[in-house]
């Protein structure tokens, strides 16, 4: 089992509590959506798991063991929102992907792995020598996913990865995530404020507000028959959708 689990996790910046005693589980081989308005603590919760935010209380475990926050083992990988800024502009696509690989491979093996990963995310392997500036937003985001996969993670955290993309490109990236879950058995925490895309990719969903999880469960149940007022408010805010009674 390699469930990613937050148990009673609190994150504070000074006196400001950003994440307040949160319990959340991403089961192995599932995509879990995490929704909520801006500033609700979604990204901070994710960053705490990879050591980018200070955990004040509680535990974060992967497969029952604490997530390593030092050393080169990287079972948890993040893909960030802005595909235009998340790749080093001076590094080639191939170098960015190869850098994330575990050590101990020959140059030839790394090159072959880069090509395999680029193919996996539907980017032409010939683009390995290109710098990010030569790629579209959708291609860059797929390269960012390939970079995350290069570390051979057990869980990938996708933090608003479609927010900066055109609607037409969003579908390509979302389908890729579904493919990766199906083909690689990858667990994914999919963070978004867009309920429609969460409904499309996630089997489970958690709703976060002011640093707390207010509701979680299977996607169809939570988004179809919400129990919490805040979830109903979020659903009512979706353009073109009437609020649930």
């Amino acid at each position: 089992m390699s469930d990613l689990r937050w148990q009673d996790v609190t994150v504070r910046y000074g006196r400001h509590v950003v994440v307040d005693r949160v319990d959340l589980t991403v089961p192995e081989g599932r995509i879990v959506g995490l929704v909520g308005e801006s500033g609700s603590g979604k990204s901070t919760l994710a960053r705490a798991a990879v050591g980018l935010a200070p955990v004040h209380g509680g535990t974060i475990t992967l497969g029952g063991a604490p997530v390593p926050t030092s050393g080169r083992r990287r079972p948890l990988q993040m893909v960030f929102q802005d595909p235009y800024a998340s790749l080093d502009p001076r590094m080639t696509v191939g170098d960015s992907v190869a850098e994330a690989m575990p050590p101990g491979r020959s140059r030839q093996q790394r090159r072959a792995e880069v090509e395999r990963l680029l193919e996996l995310v539907h980017v032409d392997p010939a683009r390995a020598r290109t710098r990010p500036g030569g790629l579209s937003g959708g291609q860059r985001q797929r390269v960012a996913i390939a970079r995350a996969l290069a570390a051979r993670p057990r869980v990938v955290i996708a933090d608003e990865i479609t927010s900066a993309l055109d609607v037409s490109i969003q579908g390509v990236v979302l389908n890729l995530l579904r493919e990766l879950r199906r083909d690689l058995g990858l667990s994914i925490l999919f963070i978004s404020h867009n309920l429609a895309v969460v409904r499309y990719v996630a089997s489970h969903v958690a709703v976060m507000r002011a640093g707390r999880i207010v509701e979680q469960g299977p996607t169809e149940r939570v988004l179809g028959h919400p129990n919490h007022d805040y979830t109903r408010t979020l659903l009512a805010a979706v353009p073109g959708r009437r609020s649930q009674p």
Partner: peptide, 13 residues
């Protein structure tokens, strides 16, 4: 402060 540095840190480089 750039995102790609945050990515590099998340990679545990």
């Amino acid at each position: 402060e750039s995102d790609f540095i945050r990515t590099a840190r998340a990679k545990r480089l």
